[in-house]
Amino acid sequence: MSGNISVRTRVRTLVDDERFQKIIIGVIILNAVVLGVETMVPEHLAHELALFDSLLLAVFVVELLLRLVAYGPRFFLDPWNVFDTVIVAIALVPATGPLSVLRALRILRVLRLVNSVPSMRRVVDGLINAMPGMGAVAGLLVLMMYVAVVISTNLYGEIAPEYFGDLGTSAFTLFQTMTGEAWPDIARTVMAEDPTAWVFFVVFILVMTFAVLNLFLAVVVSGMESVESLAEHEEESDAEMMTLLTSMRDDLTAVREELAAVRAERSQAPEAG
């Protein structure tokens, strides 16, 4: 049992080492470059690159096995570890026959960089933390979009059927308008028949683009700030814990020295007697 614990401790020290993590980051980046180069090289070099890609995949498999040994069942309690396992598992599936589409998914291995770089991981954690608020904003966006689609179809369906002929066409046109792509051309086409149509387009852009869409940014920023504050709090807690442990170690050292001094006095007392 102690031997297993010793092996696990050594493996954990290895996988947590900063140099080991930098090596894995380098392998992930190199793998991304190889997958991109594969799309451009001649056929006679494709086999060599495929072998090199398999070698890099073997490195990923070994790294996951080492982390599994280091953390045991707790490895699967971290969603990022599960994500890494799924990505590597997809790469291990033979990309032939009906599964040939999985060959294009090999590039997903690059996403492992998110788990390997703490700053990227905090950004994703912030996005995940902002999901509930983003859902509410998305619901508001869909509701207001639907209202605008119905109104524009009723007002301009006969004037510009190529843009507002039905709900689907109107939804696509307003989405295009919301992104700012070619909306002046659409507006001018409608205004040629209805000069007051500019009011609808201006109000729609002000409400949807400058108000509702910016709410997404506000929610995401708020989520990232909460993640950053949590990370800072954890760092402060770790610093306090280290200070406490250092203080306890110093106290234990002082107690040991006092006990040693008492024992020395007692051992000298009979000799003096």
Score class of each variant (00 low, 15 high):
G180N: 09
Q176S: 12
L174E: 02
E181P: 00
F172C: 00
P161F: 07
W183C: 03
F172N: 11
T189Y: 01
D166L: 06
E158P: 03
L174W: 01
F172H: 04
T189W: 00
D166N: 15
A182M: 07
A160V: 14
E158A: 15
T177Q: 05
F175Y: 11
G165V: 11
A171I: 09
I186S: 06
E181Y: 15
E158L: 13
A160Y: 04
E181N: 13
P161K: 04
A171E: 12
F164K: 12
G180L: 11
I159A: 11
G165A: 02
G180I: 09
G168I: 05
A182N: 15
F175V: 02
G168Q: 03
S170Y: 03
A171S: 15
A187K: 13
T177A: 15
A160Q: 12
E162Y: 00
E158C: 04
T189N: 04
V190I: 08
D166K: 00
P161M: 02
T179Y: 01
A182E: 12
R188T: 07
D185P: 00
A187Y: 01
P184A: 08
E158H: 14
I186R: 15
V190W: 02
S170N: 10
F164Y: 15
F164G: 11
D166Y: 03
G165S: 02
M178Y: 10
D166E: 05
S170L: 07
T179W: 00
T169W: 00
A182V: 04
Y163Q: 12
D185W: 11
E181K: 13
T173W: 05
A160R: 15
T179F: 04
W183D: 08
I159Q: 12
R188N: 12
P161N: 09
D166F: 06
E181R: 15
F164I: 13
T173H: 06
Y163A: 10
E162P: 01
L174F: 02
F164E: 09
P161S: 05
E162M: 10
T177E: 07
D185L: 13
G168T: 07
A182F: 08
A182G: 07
T173I: 10
Y163H: 15
T169V: 09
E181I: 14
I186E: 02
T169D: 02
T177R: 02
T179D: 00
A160S: 14
W183A: 08
W183M: 10
